[in-house]
């Protein structure tokens, strides 16, 4: 699956917010909550429905000095997981 042109965003059925008890971001959906780790939070922070997946990967790789390929693989795997749960939109399957 080529995701380069995808413009992922948090699904309208989900809500991203801070959990003040832990200081972590949580992705809330009906009857569920996912606690995001730092990397997951950074990825979702860029998934605004405007940036393409290509741009997201480039920004993440530059910001952290990681190899583009590795970032692309990890980010795609994470977004696949979210898509499977219906938590993001704008992601081809």
């Amino acid at each position: 699956m080529n995701h380069a042109e995808d413009q992922p965003r948090v699904a309208s059925k989900a809500k991203l917010r801070l959990d003040p008890k832990t200081g972590k971001k949580v992705l809330l959906s009906p009857e569920k909550g996912l606690v995001l780790n730092g990397s997951a939070e950074k990825i979702l922070g860029l998934c605004d429905g405007q940036r393409s997946f290509q741009q997201i990967v480039t920004e993440l790789a530059q910001a952290h000095g990681h190899a583009q390929e590795q970032v692309e693989r990890d980010t795609a795997a994470f977004l696949d997981q979210l898509a499977e749960r219906g938590l993001i939109e704008g992601w081809s399957r």
Binding site: K32, G33, V35, N37, S39, H66, L82
Partner: peptide, 25 residues
């Protein structure tokens, strides 16, 4: 990167002593 997310639904048993210091729902 190791992006990930842990479910807040407590499927996994924790070996730590639970603290009951908050509610979720």
């Amino acid at each position: 990167m190791n992006a990930g997310a842990a479910a807040t639904s407590s499927e996994a048993a924790s070996t730590e002593t639970p603290v009951f210091d908050r509610i979720y729902t």
